[in-house]
Amino acid sequence: MAMSQTNLASVQSAPSVAAAEPDVAVSARQISKTYGEVEALRSLSLEFPRGQLTSLLGPSGCGKTTLLKIVAGLLEPDSGEILVNGKAVTGPGPDRAFVFQDFALLPWASVIRNVAFGLELRGVAKSEREDVARKYIGNVGLAGFENAYPHELSGGMRQRVGLARALSVDADVLLMDEPFSAVDEQTRRKFQEDLLSLVQNENKTFIFVTHSIEEAVYVSDQIAILLPRPSRVLEVIRPSGFRDSGAVNIRRDPEYLDIVDKIWASLRSYVE
């Protein structure tokens, strides 16, 4: 199992970030999963630090969504285990919330019922869950759309609903499966900026699946590069130098550009 930890932090800022070994919220241990003949994951291990955003990045077919769904408890691994806050995962749990690539909104339910749906399933009383939902609808910038239906919203707004639903159950870990891949480029940029402040303000652990190198480098505290056939973690990159330079400056930062180039160099031979 080749797993190298590369720290590309520039010299000046290195001590403050790399000093404390971060506390681990989720860890995957020796996860294997095959679908019939196809080996999706082989003995994969990875740790996700608390309060940070970790991206799973790789070409299609490298098993990143499979890994995320195993963490969510939606799929069972053939072997290995997932620990969330030290406890083994046996199925979906209240400590994790999922944001879906295709939003997975209930078409027959209003925005507020969609956002409150996680709480509804937990048996929270209607008025209470709607208060919570209203708060998060405001937080994601959809105030005023509480009674709209999903088909009346744009793709970007629908994903905000999906995000608000995941936030409203107040889980420790947020699992995001290519959440911005179905929205247009400009909306995606806005989302990425919002995600940065979300990671900073909410003390949650984010696991973020993407196939966009730029997106991964832009939003992540830690990037795990996954390779297909057999699926494995090529390396884990922890960008650190540009995290504090402000959302608008990241894309101009030399370190940002270096990491993007470096990742592309290591992935290009796997893209057919």
Partner: peptide, 27 residues
């Protein structure tokens, strides 16, 4: 019934009866 909304319900801890009554029947 779209698999993704059934999966969503399960990830938000729906019981089997919830999946039938709140997802499958309305869908």
């Amino acid at each position: 019934t779209p698999a993704s909304i059934k999966e969503m319900a399960r990830s938000f801890l729906a019981k089997d009866s919830d999946v039938i009554l709140k997802i499958i029947i309305p869908a």
